[in-house]
Amino acid sequence: MAFADSGVRTIVNSGKGSTPPKITLAGACKVGDVLGYSSGWKPALATAGSVIQGRLVALRDGAVGDEIPVSPCPVVDGYTGGTPGNPVYVAEGANSGCITETIPDTASDATTQVGMMLSATQCQFNVGGRADSVVSG
């Protein structure tokens, strides 16, 4: 079964104790979306020309202007077909905030690993402690 980020996700562990920090959204998101900062907090995107590097993960759904809890290192459940141990990256195209096991490969795409699959359905994110990278060429 191929990996799929269906968008129906649940937080297993926020990774930040009982009171995670909060941010105000500049773009709507769903629980488990990877968020970045570009004129405000919004879903991250790996696509060349409109890259928004992932910095945090949404711990609940939110609309523009909502204040939501976030974490750089939650465990999120709700994916399908993941391969345990595989790295995950922010997705490209119309999939803002979603993840993929396929590293983006177009010149100037963001290729920063944002987490790792723990099982076919769970991802351990780690978006706070790494250097950003892009495809050169």
Score class of each variant (00 low, 15 high):
S119V: 02
G65L: 07
V76P: 03
S96Q: 14
G65D: 13
I99A: 04
G7L: 03
G49I: 09
L25T: 00
L35E: 00
K22C: 11
P74Q: 01
A44L: 00
A120G: 12
D109P: 01
I103C: 11
T80M: 11
V8T: 13
A2V: 01
Y89M: 04
A110S: 15
P72V: 12
D77F: 03
V8Y: 11
A48C: 08
P72Y: 11
V64T: 11
I52D: 01
V88M: 07
P74A: 06
Y37N: 15
C98V: 07
N13R: 12
K16A: 15
G15V: 05
G40S: 06
G81S: 07
V75I: 15
C29I: 07
R55F: 09
T100P: 00
D66A: 03
G32S: 11
D66Y: 00
P74L: 00
N13C: 09
V75E: 10
R60V: 05
M117F: 05
T24V: 10
G62R: 00
G17T: 05
D5Q: 09
L25W: 00
V57T: 06
A58Q: 09
T10F: 06
A58R: 06
P20R: 05
A2I: 02
A110I: 07
P72N: 14
A91R: 03
G40F: 05
S18Q: 12
G85P: 02
R9F: 03
L59R: 01
P74V: 03
D132V: 10
Y89G: 02
A4M: 15
A110F: 09
I52H: 03
G82L: 00
A26N: 04
P87T: 08
Q124C: 07
D5E: 10
M117C: 07
G85H: 09
P69T: 06
S6D: 13
V76N: 01
I68A: 00
D5T: 06
V88A: 05
R9Y: 00
G17I: 03
M116V: 15
S6P: 13
S133R: 06
C29H: 04
I52A: 01
R9K: 15
A120V: 13
D77M: 05
L25H: 00
P74S: 09
D132C: 13
K30M: 13
V88G: 00
G62P: 02
